[in-house]
Amino acid sequence: MSTSNSMTFNIRIWRQKNAKTPGKLVEYKLDGISPDMSFLEMLDQLNERLYAKGEEPVAFDHDCREGICGMCSLNVNGIPHGPDSQVTICQTHMRIFKDGQTITIEPWRSTAFPVIKDCVVDRSAFDRIIQAGGFVSVNTGGTPDANALPISKEIADLAMDAAACIGCGACVAACKNSSALLFVSAKASQLNLLPQGKAEKDRRVLKMVEAMDKEGFGACTNTNSCEAVCPKGIPVTFIAQLNRDYAWAMLKGAAAEPKATVGGA
């Protein structure tokens, strides 16, 4: 329920002018925070006060503020998306923090996610993984009727569990190895599970893993940190599925480049 009492926090937040300049944690005292504010509204307040003092506001990524765009990306008190489970930081509300608490806010940390400014990082590595194989190679038009291929509810639901990924990168941020495998496995598994994606399953898995490694993400050591912080609760069993699909693709020799053929009439 809404309460009228106001809270005070000691905010330690990462400030870094740009990619080239080293950064540091800076402390700000912030009072007059309502428990009904979202975490990002608390940061808005901080920024408005910095503005009033003529200090440059803290840059942080955010957009939809309803937990679906995947833009917000803050490590709060050592946990990506903060202490509330299965939500993004934009949907976390201040009522779950203690009045007077120190809150440490840092950007995602990973070699593959370089800091651009303050708490903003560059996650384009994820885009490049999808570009390598995270799709079904089908052009617009000429597709069969949507009900032509029945898909069992169980498979459709499982694919949807994987598809719920918002691409925020919390899995990478939480992993001690900066592994992107939860993201990659969710994206690959969604398509690999569905009949529409089966045709290029082997190729997809090999390409995506190759791109993932190229971006410099680490290996999965099954610590489950990714699953613990995933705002959509995507389970690590998809990682096992990816490993399986990868092993099969390798066993089948799918990694060998096919011989070039002369085609066309």
Binding site: I79, E106, A228, V229
Partner: peptide, 10 residues
Amino acid sequence: YAEYAAPGAS
């Protein structure tokens, strides 16, 4: 990380 809680990891 200045703070790292290793969430969920044994």
